[in-house]
Design a protein around this nucleic acid. Structure first.
Lengths: 342, 342
DNA sequence: CTGAAAGCGCTTACAG
DNA sequence: CTGAAAGCGCTTACAG
């Protein structure tokens, strides 16, 4: 608990002024080598460490980046947080994390708390669309994955990624497909769904029609399981032959439901996810999905935030299809198939 | 980007001194109601928000709690982090999170960074035993789940919890059991293993002998899968009838391996975990495990940290057995069974 | 109960 | 290149 040494102590020990100490600390200004040497010696002799609070007060700048996510126990967000922390660290910044529990009021107050704390910048994965509007924002703010207010967005190209899945399923011959969508109040949820739907509509025009059914839920395991259970609790001929989910968690829930109903995946049913969380490669069967490049997203978000001046343009990163065991050829042509063949 | 109003602005607007403003802000000192009123009006009129940095510099105290975990993408730690954030928020504190990636040097430097930042206190889930020794620690530090340095530890009663699992498996008739242990350089890993082993030894004395095999790994999915694959790639009569893992992640990996090898769980093999992460209830089959009460652990850690004076005694919380589908009766008496029956 | 003033530990014009 | 001094926005003895 000994009192920490200050610049003043260092200055005395080195026989220079505090200004000089500060200048060698910053490394910016030119200091005569002899003095620099003395100061550095004093610093290590005393075990001096700069007081970041004082520095922050003086410069009204810190090296802390604030991150707000809707739910840190969501594996995708945890992944994102880990990547951001790494990216921030590489730039000499540290991370302050807050979880909004999908509550836009909590989100709002976390952002305010960060602002009060004079963080260097804020990255937020919005809890829902329309949150975060009308913010004073004295520091740069970046939306990640889901738009927050009107701040620049770094995200996966949800439309492109969803299209990848649509093509994959159609290519496997599936013509009766169910789509488990994410919340309609999130842009990510909507875009993924719309891109998927419009791709299927496109196929209907040039090839075979697709019987597409859409169910809406949250992005979590439970939603996926519940919805899939509904979808699959029908006579076999009325069931979809493929379920495309808007998140890996939903897809894993769907796998669970299929298993409970003794529906063989992928022989009787194909299931696909979205995100490529680490678990996707561990479930049974391994999940076909589209990878969101968390590392790249994190890196881009941090660098937009730290850029001078801060970036203002949206950025988009393509997803990539990861084919694993949960998707396969459509079981067999339906007897009651409508639409033409080519 | 307008300059934020300060106490001085408020004081002028209210026609009082800055001291008075500060006093109504703190709520501690007595202030004449008329003045208090004026000050409050000025505060809302100007939209004044206290500058936390200045306050921190002056009082050398903040309301930030630092948390270091070995890996935020580990679902158990994510759960813990979420619980701690909630507990901290309830006490008007916010959370600063760092992930050490199981590297004790990174851990060390994160702790230093928190110290530099004059956090209110630090909670650390140690990356391994022996990390965090000889720390100056100008603020309270609490170890959570795994001991950090010599700081007080809040943890699940690993021994009691491991015993619960041992009893469960023995009670189901299993006599050839493999235990997938956690890293031997973590206390949690060692205690869980030792308690399990010693319970089994106890049975050997009073009942039937247990053929116990131990394999060591990390706490993650991959370790569990790899080790289980080894364990199970033998002739059926040489295989364990039950695998107890030191973490849910390992157990889920083991489930994966069993599935790949077409070994029916629980009919041919029982598998148990440890933690009760949310996924445990979603894998196929659902995982029998022992629940670590994350919420309670978090709450206790935060309250020890914030107590005046800070708590110094270790605290332990019991785990509870959660029986699900991955464990069942031992397949059938072995022909080559040694040991007596009772 | 209230005001005037010192000071937390830095950084940064300002002189020299 | 270096020192002396002001000041970031607060809180808190110290008088009164």
């Amino acid at each position: 608990m000994a009192k920490m040494p200050t610049v003043k102590d260092v200055a005395e020990h080195a026989g220079v002024s505090v200004g000089t100490v500060s200048r060698v600390l910053s490394g910016e200004a030119a200091v005569k080598p002899v003095l620099r040497e003395k100061v550095n010696n004093a610093i290590s002799a005393l075990g001096y460490r700069p007081n970041v609070t004082a520095r922050a007060l003086r410069t009204s700048r810190t090296d802390v980046i604030g991150l707000v996510v809707p739910d840190i126990t969501n594996p995708f967000f945890a992944q994102l947080a880990a990547s951001i922390e790494r990216a921030a660290l590489e730039c000499g910044h540290s991370l302050m994390l807050a979880s909004s529990h999908n509550d836009s009021e909590a989100e709002q107050s976390h952002v305010s708390a960060f602002l009060d704390r004079a963080v260097r910048g804020i990255i937020v994965v919005a809890s829902s669309d329309g949150s975060g509007l009308e913010l004073p924002a004295s520091v740069p703010v970046i939306s990640l994955d889901r738009r927050f207010g009107t701040f620049p967005l770094v995200s996966t190209n949800h439309a492109q990624a969803a299209t990848l899945i649509a093509d994959h399923l159609y290519g496997l011959g599936h013509r009766r497909i169910a789509y488990i969508a994410g919340p309609t109040d999130t842009e990510a949820g909507r875009i993924r769904k719309e891109a998927f739907v419009s791709r299927m509509d496109g196929f209907a025009k040039t090839g075979e029609a697709v019987d597409l059914e859409i169910a809406y839920g949250r992005f979590d395991y439970e939603s996926g399981e519940r919805i899939a259970r509904n979808l699959l609790s029908r006579r076999a001929q009325d069931r979809p032959t493929a379920i495309a989910a808007a998140s890996d968690q939903q897809a894993i829930g769907a796998l669970r439901a299929a298993r409970d109903l003794k529906i063989d995946v992928p022989r009787k049913l194909s299931v696909t996810g979205f995100d490529d969380i680490s678990l996707a490669n561990l479930v049974v069967p391994r999940l076909t999905t589209v990878r969101q490049p968390a590392d790249m997203l994190a890196r881009r978000a941090v660098s937009l935030l730290l850029a001078e001046p801060p970036g203002t343009a949206d950025e988009t990163v393509d997803g990539s299809l990861i084919v694993r065991g949960s998707s396969g050829p459509c079981p067999q042509p339906k007897a009651d198939m409508t639409g033409h063949t080519n």
